[in-house]
Design a protein around this nucleic acid. Structure first.
Length: 327
DNA sequence: AATCTTCTCAACCGCGTTATA
DNA sequence: CTATAACGCGGTTGAGAAGAT
């Protein structure tokens, strides 16, 4: 009855992966595809738990993964998506195809949290409700930025959220104009062979282990730069805008109800059809199902009077018809 | 140069969900 | 239908690197 055990608990190796192990794992995926992880230790001879193999692949070896050096845009997206979705790192990662949930989580915990905290300190007043820990918003009531500036940054953030939403709701991301416009390289994942070549290249160097640290050094520098620049004087427009966006969001829907509805419906793994089914089932099962996120977002996106949202050039490109069956 | 502290991030752990016999 | 294992996710840890003293 049931399934067979995934791996022997005895003799399973733990800790950092060696280049040899990586090669074995990459070879396996090349040959059999990513999946059926329980078979990996048996087939490859790796003395690793299947879970560990999957993790190593998804977080490190998988082709197309961009490491460190988060761009301002990515950073901004993470902040917004975190505020929208909470600590749903996998869901957030689904909007950033080159990033892993683990990476985003780490980046949030090590950089963004601090960054936001600093911002909070700078902007905090007696009536400030912001909490980085809770992922809730920052009050902009005491913002020193002019209203016009605030609105411009807010506008930028709204557009970005729309793009994220568009990407999330579009069945075929490759057709998304946003992806093509902003991230032409996103859709072109490196092939597995390229990835292996990259790995091997890394191992050829005197010290493989320093490979990653080098890249992290670079990123640390970048991050440090970003940090300092955004924390000197007035907060950066993006950070400020992000917060403004969230405040506006909350003022529209109330964060609580929004979060409760979003958490259940932004599952990144399920197909739209499956999601639609789930929602239908939920509706039937529970009369107190919160207003669907989609509806909330739709109202938000389509209400041009709200938040001084300007013209609908973006909205005209955004067809809810395509995704209507989701809800 | 040595030691201590802080930071970073890969990897592990535990739990909920899903799949299967 | 039930029991069990795989899968996937989020939280946490700890080793090593970097920075401070």
């Amino acid at each position: 009855m049931g399934r067979l055990p995934c791996c022997d608990k005895v003799g399973v190796k733990k800790g950092p992966w060696t280049p040899e192990e990586d090669i074995m794992l990459v070879s396996y995926v090349q040959e059999h595809g990513a999946g059926n992880w329980r078979a990996v230790p048996t087939i490859t001879g790796l003395r690793r738990c299947s879970k560990s193999c999957r993790l190593r692949w998804t977080n490190y070896l998988r082709p197309g993964i961009k490491r460190r050096n988060f761009t301002d845009q990515e950073e901004k997206m993470i902040i917004q998506l975190q505020a929208l979705l909470g600590n749903k790192w996998a869901a957030i990662a689904s909007y950033l195809p080159e990033r892993t949930d683990n990476d985003i989580k780490n980046y949030w915990n090590t950089h963004l949290k601090k960054k936001l905290k600093k911002l909070q300190e700078q902007c905090s007043g007696a009536d400030d409700h912001f909490s980085v820990e809770n992922g809730t918003h920052l009050s902009s009531s005491n913002s020193s930025t002019s209203r016009g500036q605030w609105e411009r940054t807010l506008q930028a953030d709204i557009n970005m959220a729309k793009k994220a939403l568009y990407n999330a709701l579009t069945l075929d991301n490759s057709t998304s104009p946003y992806i093509k416009q902003e991230n032409p390289q996103v859709s072109t994942y490196a092939s597995s062979t390229e990835n292996i070549a990259r790995l091997l290249q890394g191992w050829m160097r005197p010290s493989f282990s320093t490979n990653n640290s080098e890249s992290s050094k670079t990123s640390s520098n970048n991050i440090a730069t970003t940090d300092s620049s955004s924390c000197e004087g007035t907060p950066s427009a993006e950070s400020k805008g992000g917060m403004g966006f969230m405040e506006a969001f909350e003022s529209l829907f109330g964060m609580e109800s929004f979060e409760s509805s979003s958490s259940g419906q932004f599952s990144q793994t399920a197909s739209p059809e499956a999601e639609a089914k789930k929602i239908e089932i939920k509706k039937e099962e529970n009369e107190h199902v919160p207003v669907p996120l989609s509806i909330i977002l739709e109202n938000w996106l389509l209400d041009e009077n709200t938040l001084n949202i300007q013209p609908k050039d973006d909205l005209t490109n955004f067809s809810f018809d395509e995704t209507a069956n989701l809800f």
